[in-house]
Simulated scan of single mutants.
Amino acid sequence: MKYRRFGKTGFNASEVSLGTWQLGSKWGDPFSEKDAQETLEAAFDAGVNFFDTADVYQDGDSQRALAKFIKGKEDKVFVSTKIGRRLDPHVASGYNEKNLTKFVEDCLRNLDVDALDNVLLHCPPTSVYYEPEVFFTMDKLKKEGKIKNYGVSVEKVEEGMKALDYDISSVEIIYNMFRLRPADNFFKMAQQHDVGIIARVPLASGILSGKYTLETKFGKNDHRTTNRHGEEFDAGETFSGVDYATGVKAANELKERLGAGDILAPMALRYILMSDAVSTVIPGASKPSQIARNVEAADLPAFTPEQMEIVRDVYNKYIKNPVQYKW
Results as ranks from 00 to 15, higher is better:
E41R: 15
L264C: 03
D299N: 13
D184W: 15
I207P: 04
K82Q: 11
D52P: 01
E74Y: 01
Y212Q: 00
R4S: 12
F186L: 15
V171C: 12
F103R: 04
K255H: 11
V154Q: 09
K140D: 12
W21L: 13
Y212P: 00
S205Q: 08
S240N: 04
K140F: 07
I173K: 08
E97T: 04
R4E: 07
E105Y: 06
S17H: 09
G19K: 08
V128H: 11
S93I: 04
K220R: 15
G206M: 02
L108A: 03
A42I: 06
V281F: 00
G94T: 06
Y175H: 11
Y166V: 07
Y95R: 02
S279R: 04
N252P: 03
D184S: 14
I291G: 09
F51Q: 05
D88W: 08
K73L: 14
K211Y: 01
L269T: 03
T53F: 00
R85Q: 14
K320D: 10
V323Q: 09
Y166Q: 06
G145Y: 01
A163K: 08
V157M: 11
Y212M: 00
V201G: 03
E306R: 14
I83Y: 04
L164W: 10
P288Y: 05
E33D: 15
K156P: 07
K211F: 00
D165A: 11
S279K: 05
K162M: 12
Y3T: 07
Y175P: 02
D299K: 09
G241W: 08
G7I: 05
Q37M: 15
V152C: 15
K143M: 08
H229D: 13
F78C: 08
D29V: 10
N99Q: 13
I197E: 09
F178I: 02
S275C: 10
Q307F: 12
G206A: 04
L300D: 01
Y271N: 01
A268S: 15
P132L: 06
G236F: 03
I198R: 00
K217T: 13
M308Y: 07
R200E: 10
M189P: 02
S93C: 01
G24H: 08
I70Y: 10
D299I: 01
F186I: 07
T39C: 03
K82P: 13
Y318D: 00
V91R: 10
E253M: 09
S62A: 15
L273H: 02
S62Q: 11
E256G: 05
R85A: 12
P322G: 12
D55L: 14
R64Y: 05
R85Y: 09
K102A: 07
D112A: 14
G241I: 07
Q307I: 13
T280L: 01
V248D: 03
A245N: 14
F239A: 07
W327A: 14
L208F: 06
P30A: 14
I147C: 00
V152Y: 10
E33C: 05
C107N: 13
